[in-house]
Design a protein around this nucleic acid. Structure first.
Length: 104
DNA sequence: GCAGTGACTAGTA
DNA sequence: ATACTAGCCACTG
């Protein structure tokens, strides 16, 4: 269960993201104490259920885009969720990483 | 314990 | 600006 502890930290960081703000895997990883382990963050969110209370949709990659593991369509739903948070999307379904000034 | 894979990033073409 | 490649690190089989 040690692995769960590490994931818990990541979840905590993600849940610490205020509404209307998004963060990249690298950003979350760095804050979670895993600099350069952005992939690990992805794995953590990957095992994360949709009803875990973690706004995984606020975590995007360096391109400002999110993809749910080969399941297109979830992206569309995600966009709606983020828009509801007050986040504005760019033309290409990409997020303006300028809102990363969250800093835990 | 080794090999393969991956919700990534940065650099290069 | 977009597309591809290489690198890095952790987890799964």
């Amino acid at each position: 269960m040690k692995s769960v502890e590490k994931y818990d930290l990541i979840y905590s960081v993600v849940m610490s993201i205020p509404g209307g703000t998004v963060a990249t895997y690298g950003q979350v990883a760095a804050i979670a104490g895993l600099p350069g382990r952005a992939r690990q963050v992805g794995h953590a969110l990957r095992c994360l259920p949709d009803d875990s209370g973690v706004p995984w949709h606020r975590v995007v990659n360096a391109k400002g885009e999110i993809s749910r593991r080969g399941s297109p369509g979830s992206e569309f739903e995600q966009r709606a969720l983020l828009e509801e948070e007050g986040i504005v999307f760019n033309k290409r379904n990409r997020l303006p990483l300028e809102q990363f000034q969250w800093e835990r």
